[in-house]
Design a protein around this nucleic acid. Structure first.
Length: 423
RNA sequence: GGAGAGAUGGCAGAGUGGUCGAAUGCGGUGGUCUUGAAAACCAUUGACCUUCACGGGUCCGGGGGUUCGAAUCCCUCUCUCUCCGCCA
């Protein structure tokens, strides 16, 4: 959620930046500023009425104490008007606040100045390409065929137990999953992150805090009976650990990492996008979250990008980094880098990580602040990224490392898998 | 699932109709003392909205009510804890 004070002081800048998303926001922002104006003038009017009313009550109390009952009772009559008036103003104020809030939540984050304007993935900027496309023989197979051939993943079994998009990993497939999770977590620990095991179901306040609600309501699994949401990413519980807190300045930056399964309804997806491991309802991911001072956030974003790139290099995967254009970025992000690995047998790029700086957009909702040097509280910046999402990494590993002899496991993973080849 | 208790400042914990944004202790910060530290002592220490400022207002789990006046009384919701039951 954008800060009203920001919109007030930098109206034109906000409009310009939102235009990078191909969003015409000036009307909404004007409405917001008008409501904010109303809110403030209404509030000061209400405050004045309440101040007078408080004053009278004190005097009445004093009169009763002095035994001047008649005078006190006479004074009571005067409060009736004030009471009436304050009630009216309060009702009005609540309406204004609701209207303001309803408008505010419709505005996405303002893209950073360096983010390119654009409508869709077509306009994303390719920042860096690492490695080369592996040369595979003409009979190379896509990962779903390899998974079947080596009995690594049973998609049919998942359909029987749950439905499409819920694969069952078996044998070396399951062990490879576990190895990847451990490898990623260990690498994150080495980079200074603290490991967490958060809940996999969250309440509505948490969903709102990180911005999934109300924006992505339909994309989350919701348990009506208990009013809980299955997490679409560990970002939600991890970041919400710090909801409604004032972090000590010297404790920043806070760095945390967690492995969790992620649940997504993926309503509306179809075709080759959902084949095999490309898009699932349940998948595994190791996430990193950073909370820091505003002046540090873009440095930390670069750090995260370097860290995630390092993971992919250790796995020997050919990948590229994209800086998303305004229109392709998530609702809550100010700048996002996507990491895509090359899927040799499918001949396409697959997204395996998304690293974003949310600036104060989430912390404003979360009421996540720190105490600055001048002793005042100030909103933190929040960032997160996948390090990494497993299914597409697995897909690329299987496809790119296949040969007639089987599938070669990257050296860095062998200590975690306990085997170096699938055959 | 059954029974009971509770929700107050960073934490612990008083407060049962006005002088309570709230005792006290711990913690934090500043100081005195000390070669330094500890101890002791003194002072200070919640958040939010609004104002250039002075000031004003809101907040004692959420919402509603009674009253001139509510942390305190009433209704309601949510959550937590304890005991019993069930159970990984």
């Amino acid at each position: 959620m954008l800060e009203v004070s920001y919109l007030r002081e930098h109206r034109n800048e906000a409009v310009q930046r939102l235009a990078k998303r191909k969003l015409q926001a000036d009307i909404t922002i004007n409405d917001i500023l008008r409501l904010d104006e109303q809110r403030r003038s209404n509030q000061s009017e209400l405050d004045a009425v309440l101040a007078e009313s408080n004053q009278l009550s004190k005097e009445i109390g004093q009169l009763f104490k002095e035994g001047k009952k008649d005078e006190a009772n006479a004074m009571k009559a005067k409060t009736a008007d004030l009471k009436e008036k304050s009630k009216e103003l309060q009702v009005e104020q609540d309406q204004i606040k609701h209207a303001l809030e309803n408008l505010l939540v419709t505005l996405p984050n303002t893209p950073h100045a360096n983010v390119k304007e654009g409508a869709s993935a077509e306009d994303n900027e390719e920042i860096k390409v690492v490695g080369e496309k592996p040369l595979l023989s003409s009979d190379a197979q896509p990962h779903w065929e390899l998974a079947d051939r080596y009995k690594l993943i049973d998609f049919e079994l998942g359909v029987k137990i749950s439905g499409a998009g819920f694969p069952v990993y078996t044998g070396k497939g399951a062990r490879l999953q576990r190895a990847l999770i451990n490898f990623f977590l260990e690498q994150n620990l080495e980079a200074g992150y603290v490991e967490y095991q958060p809940p996999h179901f969250v309440n509505e306040a948490s969903g709102f805090g990180t911005g999934q609600l109300p924006d992505k309501e339909g994309q989350m699994y919701h348990m009506e009976k208990d009013d809980l949401y299955a997490i679409p990413t560990a970002e939600v519980p991890l970041t919400n650990i710090f909801r409604d807190t004032i972090v000590k300045s010297e404790d920043l930056p806070v760095r945390c990492t967690a492995y969790t399964p992620c649940f997504r309804r993926e309503a509306g997806s179809y075709g080759k996008d959902v084949r095999g491991l490309n898009r699932l309802h349940q998948f595994d991911k190791v996430e990193v979250v950073n909370i820091c001072k505003p002046e540090d956030s873009y440095g930390i974003l670069d750090e995260m990008v370097a860290h995630v790139g390092g993971l992919l290099e250790k796995l020997g995967l050919h990948y590229r980094i994209l800086r998303l254009c305004g229109g392709d970025m998530g609702f809550t992000s100010a700048m996002t880098y996507d990491f895509e690995v090359w899927s040799a047998a499918q001949g396409r790029w697959l997204e395996v990580s998304s690293v974003s700086n949310f600036e104060t957009y989430q912390s404003n909702r979360l009421k996540l602040r720190y105490r600055a040097e001048d002793k005042k509280t100030q909103l933190c910046h929040t960032l997160n990224g996948s390090a990494l999402a497993l299914p597409r990494v697995l897909a690329a590993l299987l496809e790119n490392n296949q040969s007639a002899e089987g599938i070669q496991i990257p050296e860095v993973l062998v200590p975690y898998t306990g085997f170096d080849k699938i055959s």
